[in-house]
């Protein structure tokens, strides 16, 4: 554990909680892509199956349980409790164009051809592109609420901090995981355009294009 990873994890947690609170407090999921949230729920589910097979630390276990719980709570709020406010017409990204190639890639390129390892690899690849339906939705409607931009900023910051974490771990522990690093770089790059707008527009709600 190093400072980049810790702050990265906390930033990730902040993003998840910001989104949950935004939906809960406003009683609305307008402007939020339910498809991205389903993808994140799939990401956490397929990655954290190792909860059942190995114990790493109390921190690790708690965070995994919280991430999974929040992901499903968010999906529940969007598709059940506040589904009347869900803007499905604008959430039109074809997720099969992500899930199918990513599934194929996970089978082809992985550390070990085993069930859990392929699911872990699938989750890493899928996470790197899971935000695309959300970015697509924002580009389609041309706007995002301020709180939604904070959510996206925290989510992008998390992966950017993980890149520093991997540099740290390479130098000080000789550890590197090429699959996680490449996917993490892809994921971070997808946020670059957003980061630029977020900083230059001071995080205000704005018209947005990608």
């Amino acid at each position: 554990m190093n400072i980049f990873r810790l702050i990265g994890d906390l930033s990730h947690l902040a993003a998840i909680i910001i989104l949950l609170l935004k939906i809960w407090k406003s009683r609305s999921c307008a402007g939020i892509s339910g498809k991205s949230q389903i993808l994140f729920a799939i990401v956490f589910t397929t990655r954290y199956l190792d909860l059942l097979t190995s114990f790493i630390s109390l921190y690790n276990t708690c965070m995994k349980v919280i991430y999974i719980g929040c992901a499903y709570a968010t999906v529940y709020l969007i598709y059940m409790k506040f589904r009347a406010t869900y803007d499905g017409n604008h959430d039109s990204f074809r997720v099969e164009f992500l899930v199918v190639p990513v599934g194929g890639l996970a089978v082809l390129i992985n550390h070990d051809f085993s069930f859990l390892e392929i699911l872990w690899t699938f989750s890493i690849y899928l996470e790197s592109v899971a935000i695309l339906p959300q970015l697509f939705m924002i580009s389609k409607t041309g706007e995002a609420e301020t709180i939604t931009t904070h959510y996206l900023f925290c989510l992008g910051l998390y992966r950017a901090l993980y890149l520093f974490n991997w540099i740290w771990r390479f130098y000080f522990e000789g550890f590197f995981d090429m699959i996680a690093i490449v996917a993490g770089v892809v994921q971070t790059v997808l946020y670059c355009d957003f980061f630029y707008l977020y900083v230059t527009k001071d995080g205000k709600g704005y018209r947005f294009s990608i």
Binding site: D50, N60, D112, E117
Partner: peptide, 10 residues
Amino acid sequence: REFIYQHDEL
């Protein structure tokens, strides 16, 4: 070299 497939990151 034995690689241990225990992913300790979130």
